[in-house]
Design a protein around this nucleic acid. Structure first.
Lengths: 248, 248
DNA sequence: AAGTGGTCTAGACCACTCA
DNA sequence: GAGTGGTCTAGACCACTTA
């Protein structure tokens, strides 16, 4: 009875904490600055460390913070816009600031979801090329590109072991193909162990999974599954510059 | 010394738990089926409830599970593909299975990020229209549409109170505008309290935030910020059907 | 009223980074 | 080796749904 009848919707502590911290980040901290450690922050706000961590996790999810084990928690820079919906760097391994780099390639049977898109069966291994997308020294995305043998007929003789040279050969053959279109989708996922290593994150970190289906010669020529760091990336679609084209 | 030298990379318990549960979901459970409650699952696997919850949280993030307070944890259906990159239902309040529905409209000064896109200043209030996107009875997205008065000149006389009628009036005026293009971006966020209510989720739930900048008459005609449920939605871009167009 | 998931605590130990 | 964030525990209570 002593309790006031207000506060009938008691906001969770971690939620309130999050907004307080968020405001503090805006007004009192600069990008890159290191926050006090979790134990001290928890003490300062009078909550258990687990509760404080719940707030920090959300802020990290929103791209406001960056946490690294053994180092500390820092204020993250604004998310970078990453073009995903244009054809500019499709197969080329350009040397610009934002470019894909081959890692290696093996021959393997793709996961069921990819098999469905490629319309292949469990007996058909495909070329599986791993690439990374790097910008300003930061890894943005890790990609697995699935190419059925039918899309790269010139590669039949080259059935040596996997590796970087092989990956480049697949891409070279692929670039000969005439593409007619493509479909893309974006969904939330968590990083597999191998992707996490590539992205410099812990396994399970939130990622944006971009699945691209390349269509050429009336068939699905290839499927790419790219996982982008959800904390640092804002994926951009549509024609940047299309504005001027259409307006002019 | 007694400890074996193997297991040098001890996988976290919750991570191992996640894969075990994931496999079980594939083989032993049907969509919609209810899992045992958290306390029992934790006991069954010999871990603390918090650890079990960490695994469940990840599976929910990946769209494999659906948890509802007071009810239980159920196996989620596969994510629905939601078209985001086409012009079909831009302003129309169609009555199909997948359609936008107006909620209301007020006049307000937009957040700083939107002001930057609209190129307005803190003294300029804009029309702020709230819409919801529903498919098969399930709410998919909540949207806030920001329309500067310059884009809807016909509305000057109609400066009454907010509400549904007003929202429809704004959209009607907006549809007269000739659009020249648009830009979109996708990023991860967490649901604000109002969006969460609209989406039938708890505040802080992970969402995919789609920001669309509509360009018409050489200016930014409007900006839409739509938040999609990250657990249930797979956003699709690019021309579905463009394949046939280009191939034929 | 019973049962569910959501929040919170106060500890402990581990893995990692860096001086 | 000191300090950081990451994992884990064993409890408690709360908010919500359903019957």
């Amino acid at each position: 009875m002593g309790t006031s009848q207000l506060e009938s919707v008691p906001e969770p502590k971690y939620w309130h904490l999050k907004t307080v911290l968020s405001d503090a980040l805006d007004s009192e901290f600069a990008v890159g600055e290191i926050l006090p450690n979790e134990r001290e922050l928890a003490a300062r706000f009078g909550v258990a460390r687990a509760t404080l961590r719940q707030a920090l996790e959300q802020l990290e999810l929103e791209g406001r913070l960056q946490r690294r084990r053994g180092v500390g928690t820092t204020v993250a820079p604004p998310r970078v816009g990453v073009a995903v919906g244009d054809y500019t760097h499709t197969w080329t391994e350009a040397a610009g600031d934002d470019a894909w780099a081959c890692v290696d390639s093996v021959e393997a049977v793709p996961p069921a979801a990819v098999m469905r898109l490629l319309d292949t069966d469990p007996d058909t291994p495909v070329h599986q090329v791993r690439r990374t997308r790097v910008s300003q020294g930061q890894p943005l995305a890790a990609e697995l590109l699935y190419v059925p043998p039918a899309s790269v007929p010139g590669l039949a003789a080259l059935d040596g072991p996997g590796g970087l040279a092989r990956a480049r050969a697949v891409l070279r053959e692929l670039s000969r193909l005439k593409l007619e279109g493509r479909e893309q989708s974006v969904e939330l996922g968590s990083a597999r162990a191998d992707d996490a290593r590539e992205l410099d994150r812990l396994p399970g970190a939130p990622v944006l999974v971009v699945t691209t289906r390349y269509v050429g010669e009336h068939r699905t020529a290839a499927v790419a599954v790219a996982t982008y760091r959800a904390d640092t990336c804002r994926l951009t679609f549509g024609d940047p510059g299309g504005v001027e084209l259409l307006a002019g």
